[in-house]
Design a protein around this nucleic acid. Sequence first.
DNA 1: CACCTTGCACGTCTTACCTCA
DNA 2: TATGAGGTAAGACGTGCAAGG
Length: 355
Amino acid sequence: MELGLSLGDAAKSFEFFPRNSNLNTIATNNTGLGVCMALGINLNGRVQEQVKAPESIHDDSPDTSEETIKTQTRDHLDQRVSLSPPVQLDLLPLYPVPRHTPSHQRPFPWPSDDGSSDKDSSGNMRLPVARGFEVNKTPTAAEEVSSPNSVASSFQMDFSLYMAGNGGKKRDAEATGNDTVDAEDDENGLNSRKKLRLSKEQSAYLEESFKEHNTLNPKQKLALAKQLNLRPRQVEVWFQNRRARTKLKQTEVDCEYLKRCCETLTEENKRLHKELQELRALKKSNPFYMQLPATTLTMCPSCERVATTSTAPPTTTTNTNNTDSNPKATPFSLSRPSFFPFSSTPAQSHQSAAS
DNA sequence: CACCTTGCACGTCTTACCTCA
DNA sequence: TATGAGGTAAGACGTGCAAGG
């Protein structure tokens, strides 16, 4: 996981997930006040997996307890996620991907603009080959054992959910046309509200998709739902929650940054007050010091490097930034340091201070 | 202009999972 | 080692708003 932070243009609403951009690229923008953050999964840590069609989908071994299955599945998944180098996630039967295609070049099942790849001759959405994830269904022990080399084969490909439509309540019914699955869920003792965890593979795939598009159009939503064997409503909700959490994290980062800025400014203020007192004391003890040309002191608070710039003689200098109410008595120029937390990124300020 | 649909943000609820005593 | 409490992350939902037809 990578976390990048930089200043940006507040007017751009901190949109640090620019569409069609690489998430791992830290967005920088020096046009104004703001903070931009990029948060993403390290490419090296991406969950990638090759999925094979399961052959023992409904092989429910009666002697396998649910807890055992869950434990095995969790352990199995954990092992798979930590694979290094990662195995390719090949979930796109309709969009074959070379095994060693870099992850950032792998396409997502976004339908083409004309929708040609997702519709059959009759205009209906074409369902892919039965290859995907069975949501919320843990693999049986028999599946685990039967295909030890196919780590993903434990995922059942059952498109009945998607084909049945389901869709929660009213709006899902709109999208899918019926609420069959809800009834089925109730029959199976599954509350429609019941939260069912997505698999790591599904989450990782959704994350990758989110990098490509942090919002979905209906075609994309349907394609993703098909690809992951999720209900479109689940994909929609996942993206909504993902956006919300992204925004929340961004807010936290913004707050943290502003807090640091405040602290920096407080320190700078203290330092300037102290400097002012010293200069006043110096002026009292050495009045001839007034003949010296005014000087602008600039210090970068991060590296404490001080740049001194002589300006016009005091007789011709008018300094509006002078903190003293009596310019005659204090002909020194104590202008604002060139480093100002809100004017540019710290790195940029550092550069300007150094130059 | 009213009405309807759709998508989204936001807040909240609920549940799975983890940590720790 | 087992267990329950508490915290956290995340899936799911209700509601309101805005845009577009």
